[in-house]
Design a protein around this nucleic acid. Structure first.
Lengths: 209, 209
DNA sequence: TAATAAAGTCACCAATTGGTGACCTATTTT
DNA sequence: AAAATAGGTCACCAATTGGTGACTTTATTA
């Protein structure tokens, strides 16, 4: 018969693996990805490093595992495609854009991951990126492509610039002295200015159709 | 009397310092800033690490020195403000934007520095950033602010998004699998699409005045 | 309950890291 | 030429890194 209840918490493989994954995030947030070394991770997790080799195969695989388990796009998926997309998804995309700008500002782990991805080459990053692209492709194909028709390519390029802009501004705001083009990205006022700019740029693009 | 000619090349403080600075750039380009350790730098320079302590005070100061000596904004300064700015600097800013997009794509060291600045907190980065901001402030105040008047703030926000966008896209393009919003940022075609988007967004902003 | 496998610990290794004192060698000054 | 200064090398140190073999402890199963 099954004995699912209350095993010794200290002798549980899955739980131990999770403690390593938690330690990775902890270090990532507090020390940055440069500090993600076996000894440090093991010490942070309060466990023996040997287990990292046993369970994951090594630090690299542990990190890959961490990256893989992070589904940062669940929040985007949560934004169901509005019923009313007669406007070519204008309102929907705007909402998505602004909420994404705020979301990235709050989620420090996501910021670190964005940065990390730009810094190192890693197979698991490619997977993450591909998943993101597939996700975006779905949106573009179902919403904007039909609306913009032959100008769909131009719309995509505009979206690329704008989304890239929000990413960079969020990353930039997280470091000290975060004034960009004279706008203080850490204040509510500054962020509002950026949001209005995002809305304006999107509106211009839709109006230009 | 002065003896300026042909001293022993191997006994020249300034030249030796330069060799360390060169080594830093070399490593930055080939291995990334994570590999910037004393032993490695000394080995790359073909010199004794002791000299790093002697001449710079340590690795940190050497890196700060490297960052300080890099005036990546000379190229921007090179673009003299056009005589004809009756258009509020529209053409001038567009030219600047597009050339900056191409410049960053080519200058790997600048890319690394941009990334590095987002990753670590370092006094010399703040200096660099402040210098950039001061530079941009000059442009904005002399060109766009008078033209846009009360809407100058909105113009700044738009510029922030667009410039940040070009930075991020250039950084993103430098890693593998560089498709963003379905646009391949490594191809001439993809980059042209982005450039057209940049021009379009800027034009929209100027038209909206 | 005895055997077996899995969970977890400890001690140790080699390589690399940052850092320095003692030394040698070339150049300048007197 | 002798002394002083500055450029440069070498050997060594302690701390940290990645990695593993031998061991103990707990859980599972026959």
């Amino acid at each position: 018969m099954q004995q699912e209840v209350e095993k010794d918490v200290r002798r549980n493989k899955e739980q131990t693996k999770q403690r390593f994954l938690d330690a990775v995030e902890d270090i990532l947030l507090t020390k940055g990805f440069a500090a993600l070394k076996v000894n440090h991770i093991a010490k942070t997790a309060g466990l023996d490093k040997k287990l990292i080799y046993k369970y994951f195969g090594g630090t690299e695989q542990l990190l890959d595992d961490y990256i893989r388990t992070k589904d940062f796009w669940s929040n985007v998926k949560g934004n169901k495609i509005s019923d009313d997309i007669t406007d070519g998804g204008h309102k929907f995309v705007e909402k998505l854009l602004l909420s994404q700008y705020d979301y990235v500002a709050k989620d420090k782990a996501f910021q670190k991951l964005l940065l990390w991805r730009l810094t190192e080459q890693r197979a698991s990053f490619k997977k993450l990126t591909d998943a993101q692209e597939a996700n975006g492709e779905l949106l573009l194909q179902s919403i904007s492509d039909p609306y913009f028709g032959p100008r769909a390519g131009q719309f995509r390029a505009v979206m690329a610039v704008i989304i890239a802009g929000t990413y960079y501004l969020d990353l930039y705001a997280a470091v000290n002295g975060s004034t960009f083009c004279g706008i203080d990205l850490e204040t509510e006022r500054g962020r509002d200015q950026i949001k209005r700019a995002l809305s304006f740029l999107l509106r211009s693009t839709y109006n230009d159709k």
